[in-house]
């Protein structure tokens, strides 16, 4: 299967890429291409121009910047999954990256690309939301920072403007611990999430001082599970507290039936995986 014809440019600098994106109607940015090329081959999307950012140096780094870590636009899923900075400061995101696609996909696909693609059932959006990530959207006009919880607008729709590139993901170093768990479409952790949840918790003297829970695969977009998050904050993190929080997993979420599960089943799974993510994050926080 071939995509429809398109023009292709491979700028050497980010400024050139941003200028090209700003000046070219209907252009799309490609890095690994794991999501975009599939859509183009199925002709669900036919951009007139592809701007390949894959040859721009310095975007393939994960950096330690004192109060946060920064994941560049070309950092692959494989690197996010295994890098010492992500496994320590963004465990849920690293875990989600390790279950994204398969080895070949993780070799080429990028974390920022997956987030920008905004699939309703992708793993890393849940991790990014739980870890309190900030997306840095850059255009010729400058930078715009978008909280992960506000980034996923609808199915395959992010808050990025057509002339913006997601150049970097910033994860604050807030202490606390995080975890991600899911049911994959092919069972276990394989393939997109039928449902998945990531949880970040910070404990203080046996009390959950702060938390965030991200959901994926369940609704029209990955989202913050606000009810469950509210329920676990201030609790003692006990099994009862986790169960009570999990009961509120889909509060405010429009649960969507799809090929992989009914509304009832997805709701059930959301509760199961919110509980599991919380259990794992709290266990890490206690250890």
């Amino acid at each position: 299967m071939y995509p429809r014809p398109f023009e292709y440019v491979a700028p050497k600098t980010l400024d050139e890429a941003l200028a090209a994106l700003d000046q070219t109607e209907g252009a799309k940015v490609i890095s690994g291409g794991m999501s975009l090329l599939g859509l183009m081959k199925l002709r669900l999307l036919s951009p007139g121009t592809l701007i390949d950012i894959g040859r721009i140096p310095e975007l393939d780094q994960i950096e330690d910047r004192d109060d946060h870590i920064a994941i560049g636009a070309l950092v692959t899923h494989g690197m996010t999954a295994s890098h010492a900075l992500t496994t320590e400061h963004a465990t849920a995101l690293a875990q989600a990256a390790s279950w994204t696609g398969d080895v070949q996909v993780r070799n080429r696909g990028t974390t920022c690309g997956s987030l920008a693609h905004a699939d309703t059932a992708a793993d890393q959006p849940a991790g990014a939301i739980a870890c309190g990530a900030v997306m840095v959207a850059r255009s010729v006009g400058g930078d715009r920072e978008i909280a992960a919880a506000d980034f996923f607008v609808d199915a395959l729709t992010s808050a990025l403007e057509p002339n913006e590139i997601l150049v970097e993901l910033r994860i604050p170093k807030e202490g606390g611990r995080s975890a991600y768990d899911k049911l994959g479409r092919r069972g276990g952790h394989s393939d997109y999430a039928v449902a998945g949840a990531a949880a970040w918790v910070r404990s203080d003297n046996g009390t959950v001082a702060d938390a965030r829970i991200g959901l994926t695969g369940v609704g029209t977009a990955p989202s913050l599970a606000a009810g469950a998050t509210e329920a676990i904050i201030g609790s003692d993190g006990s099994a009862e507290a986790i169960a009570a929080a999990a009961e509120r997993a889909v509060e405010g979420v429009t649960v969507l039936e799809d090929l992989y599960g009914s509304e009832e089943y997805k709701t059930h799974l959301a509760k199961v995986y919110v509980a599991r993510a919380l259990e794992q994050a709290l266990a890490l926080a206690r250890s």
């Binding site: 491979a10 090329l37 070949q104």
Partner: peptide
């Protein structure tokens, strides 16, 4: 040296 699915990569990306 990196394993890649060549049906999901453009020839021009392999320049």
């Amino acid at each position: 040296g990196i394993s890649t699915k060549s049906c999901t990569m453009l020839a021009v990306q392999a320049e």
